[in-house]
């Protein structure tokens, strides 16, 4: 399989604080990587750097065979990186459909004349996107398409999270970044969501995923490989079983004896 993402020496500094320090990480196409580490270890910083929200202080990123170091968020989205956020960033006042279409930005025709004058063609495009949105939502929860035109804020927690994942998926990214999808959910909901992620991967075998998660059960089931961060550095990488038994990892989580 091809290497999709290749980061070397990623460093993000905020003034005197080094949030990410010389991180080397690569990911193959179709692979799921679990990213773990204590709070403040730099996991979300890594996502923010990958999506262009934070400027890199040093290091290089290659994505899909192209150099994308220092690219703007818009360019990285166009290249095929989509994400969810740890604290939900759905537009709660907008309908579920509108939220999905935000993730579908790549495919929307944004010409002035098309939108304002050619309302027939616009309606055709709208219908096509609606069909896709319904199908995607149904694959997560068969009840969701019925709520397509409800405000996203009226959904329950797990459905909101699903919509957020759908919003990231509908643009057909090559790399999906999931930032702690189980945050704020009950044990059962976490379990359901994990099944959703597995099912998505089955439908799209080419999709690469990086998953930040504190729920170790999720990491164990979903990821092919794990990387552990601590104080902005990668301390360990490998299959789940070997990573959790690594003394450095135990030290990072529980402290040295």
């Amino acid at each position: 399989m091809n290497v999709l993402l290749d980061c070397s020496g990623l460093t993000v500094r905020f003034g005197g604080l080094t949030a990410l320090n010389g991180l080397d990480l690569s990911l193959k196409q179709g692979e799921t990587l679990g990213l773990i580490g204590p709070n403040g270890s730099g996991k979300t910083t890594f996502f923010n750097a990958l999506t262009g929200l934070y400027r890199l202080s040093a290091g290089r990123v290659r994505f899909d065979g192209r150099e994308v170091t220092g690219a703007a968020p818009q360019a990285l989205y166009d290249a095929g990186i989509a994400r969810t956020f740890q604290r939900s960033r759905l537009c709660l006042a907008l309908s579920v459909f509108d939220n999905l279409m935000i993730g579908n930005h790549r495919r929307l025709s944004l010409g002035m004349a098309f939108n304002l004058l050619q309302r027939r063609s616009f309606e055709q495009e709208l219908r096509a996107h609606e069909t896709r949105a319904r199908a995607l939502l149904a694959s997560f929860n068969p009840g969701l398409p019925d709520r397509l035109y409800d405000p996203a804020g009226e959904l329950g927690m797990i459905d909101r999270r699903r919509v957020e994942v759908c919003r990231a998926l509908i643009g057909e990214p090559k790399l999906l970044l999931l930032d702690e999808p189980s945050a704020g959910m009950t044990h059962d909901e976490t379990h359901e969501l994990m099944e959703d992620i597995l099912a998505t991967r089955e439908r799209q075998p080419g999709l690469s995923v990086i998953l930040i998660e504190h729920e170790m059960g999720v990491i164990e089931r979903v990821s092919h490989r794990c990387a552990v961060l601590n104080f902005g550095e990668k301390i360990c990488e490998g299959p789940y079983a070997s990573v959790v038994s690594d003394p450095r990892v135990q030290e990072a989580y529980l402290g040295a004896e």
């Binding site: 989509a82 537009c91 935000i102 993730g103 930005h105 790549r106 944004l110 616009f122």
Partner: peptide, 30 residues
């Protein structure tokens, strides 16, 4: 004009930018 603007992808884009600039830029909005 304003009504059609709102009822199109243009209005959606403006809403996305207003509600959450960060999320909008992550999804490719300029």
């Amino acid at each position: 004009l304003v009504r059609r603007l709102e009822r199109s992808w243009l209005g959606l884009s403006l809403d996305a930018v207003r509600i959450d600039e960060t999320a909008a830029s992550v999804f490719g909005f300029n």
